[in-house]
Amino acid sequence: MPAVLGPEDIADILHRYFERGERSPDIVLDTMPRSDVSPSVVDELLARPDVHDDDYLVFRHLTAPRTTILDVGANFGYSATSIWRAGSKAAVVSFEPIPMYARVLEALAERINPPPGGLLHRWRHPKRYESFSTGISDRAGTITFHLSVLNGDRINSALTTASTRVDIESYVRNTLFFAEANGFEITSFRLHPFTAPVTTLDQWAADAPSTLKRRKIVAIKIDTEGYEGHTMVGAAKLLHQHRPLVMAECGHAIPLAVETMKQHGYAMLRRSGDRLEIAEAPSGVNTFYGHPSQFRHYRDIGLMS
Results as ranks from 00 to 15, higher is better:
H146F: 14
H192D: 06
P115L: 13
L159F: 12
S133R: 13
P49F: 11
K262H: 05
S38Y: 07
N151R: 06
A219L: 10
S210K: 07
V42R: 09
S38P: 00
V258K: 01
R124D: 05
T199W: 09
Q263M: 03
D138S: 15
A257C: 11
I278A: 08
S131I: 07
W84N: 00
I83L: 15
W84C: 02
L239V: 02
L245M: 09
Y289N: 00
N151P: 08
I13R: 12
R154P: 00
I136S: 11
S88A: 09
T81S: 14
G141N: 11
V93F: 12
T224A: 15
M232R: 02
L245G: 00
E277G: 01
L14G: 01
G152Y: 08
F76P: 00
L108N: 09
A248E: 05
G6N: 13
E44Q: 09
G251Q: 03
V246S: 04
P282D: 03
L245Y: 00
L201R: 05
R296P: 00
P99E: 07
A80W: 13
S137M: 10
G73Y: 14
L119R: 15
L105P: 10
A91G: 13
R48F: 08
L191C: 04
R23V: 05
L176P: 05
V4M: 09
G229Y: 03
T68P: 14
V28T: 06
S210C: 09
A279M: 02
H125F: 15
T287D: 01
R20Q: 12
P49M: 09
G226D: 06
P39G: 08
G117S: 06
E19A: 07
P292A: 05
T142S: 14
Y17E: 08
P292L: 04
K213S: 13
S210M: 09
S35Q: 07
S188C: 06
S272L: 02
G284V: 00
I136L: 15
P2L: 12
P65V: 07
P2N: 12
R215M: 11
A80P: 07
S148A: 14
M304V: 02
P115N: 02
R122D: 14
V37S: 11
R103W: 02
T287S: 11
R243K: 15
G284H: 03
P115G: 04
I155W: 03
I254E: 09
S163G: 04
K237N: 13
K213E: 06
E259Y: 01
S131V: 08
S24T: 15
V58R: 00
L14Q: 01
D167T: 01
S35H: 06
M232Q: 11
V198C: 15
A196I: 05
P33E: 08
M304P: 02
P126R: 12
N182C: 05
P255I: 04
H297W: 14
G273A: 04
L239E: 04
H15M: 08
G135W: 11
N182D: 13
K213Q: 14
S210T: 10
A205D: 06
A267K: 04
S305A: 06
D223V: 07
S79T: 15
A109Q: 11
E185W: 05
I301Q: 06
E106W: 06
L5Q: 09
M32D: 04
M232H: 04
A162E: 00
P114W: 10
L238A: 10
E8K: 10
H291F: 04
L105C: 10
R124C: 10
I10V: 09
A219C: 09
V28K: 03
